[in-house]
């Protein structure tokens, strides 16, 4: 029989997992080094590092459009913004195998280099837009943690 302490730890972990996904059609693991920000409005989920690297998830209505449509919509929008240059475009998958697309951009603001990553998934009528961004050096430092968090994404 499990001792009280490990049982308590497991209960807390399960509760955290449940409450993390409570009310959301998805679940994501907040990676080490980031803290989830409460009271979000435009984002269904947002977490950030002390250095200012931010990870966010938006959930919007996908209509009847697919990943390719929304990927192009995102790319066209970013192309119009000043100072964003597309670095890479890649196929990605969520933890439950949902296929998506990732666009990675560089951005210069007031002489500083930034990186901005967008992942797009469509599940049912939901469009999930996962964003990560920060200065180039900070993004490099948290790259593994951010990729891990994005890979942990599951859709309900």
């Amino acid at each position: 029989m499990m001792s009280p302490l490990p049982r308590l730890r497991l209960t807390l972990l399960l509760a955290a997992w449940v409450f993390a996904g409570c009310g959301r059609p998805f679940a994501i693991q907040t990676p080490p080094g980031l803290v989830e920000l409460p009271g979000q409005t435009d984002f269904a989920y947002r977490a950030m590092t002390p250095d200012g690297v931010v990870l966010g998830v938006r959930v919007v209505d996908a209509g009847n459009a697919d990943v390719a449509f929304w990927t192009e919509a995102v790319w066209l929008h970013m192309k119009d913004l000043t100072g964003y240059a597309l670095l890479t475009s890649a196929d990605v998958s969520s933890a439950d195998g949902t296929r998506g697309k990732e666009l990675r951009f560089s951005h210069v603001d007031h002489g500083r280099d930034f990186e901005y990553t967008v992942r797009v998934f469509v599940q049912g009528h939901h469009l999930f837009v996962v964003e990560a961004g920060g200065t180039k050096e900070d993004m490099s430092r948290y790259r593994a943690a951010l990729d891990g968090a994005m890979a942990s994404l599951r859709f309900n």
Binding site: V54, G133, G134
Partner: peptide
């Protein structure tokens, strides 16, 4: 979309 909105955590 973009860094301006993502990095603006004023809604928290």
């Amino acid at each position: 979309l973009g860094l301006r909105s993502l990095l603006d955590v004023s809604s928290t």
